[in-house]
């Protein structure tokens, strides 16, 4: 069970309190109606799924309730850093 640093609580807490929430930094387009089918499909379904450094979202569901971003190595499972939603990509 991982320990995850919540950037809002500024504490390491047990993974049980968290929920994974997919790849990070995929912003909902401002004007979906203006998008081509292909671009919309890309936004909806296509994800990077890298081997190694992965930007992802977690939610401290059973804690402060906040969604936040993280960089985690998908090979080692280790978190490199976690940061608040809205902050620039690390």
């Amino acid at each position: 069970m991982l320990l995850i640093h919540c950037p809002y609580c500024d504490e390491q807490r047990a993974e049980l309190e968290f929920a994974y929430a997919g790849e990070a930094h995929i912003a909902r387009p401002d004007d979906p109606a203006a998008m081509s089918d292909e671009d919309w499909q890309y936004y909806l379904f296509v994800r990077a799924n890298p081997r190694g450094r992965h930007h992802e979202r977690w939610r401290h569901t059973h804690g402060c309730g906040r969604f936040f971003n993280a960089v985690r190595d998908t090979l080692s499972d280790k978190f490199e850093v976690t940061y608040k939603a809205g902050e620039p990509r690390r």
């Binding site: 929920a19 929430a21 909902r28 939610r59 309730g65 939603a85």
Partner: peptide, 13 residues
């Protein structure tokens, strides 16, 4: 609730 929180916190903060 989780889905609504997601939009609220991350798309329309």
């Amino acid at each position: 609730l989780n889905m609504m929180e997601d939009y609220l916190q991350t798309e329309w903060p």
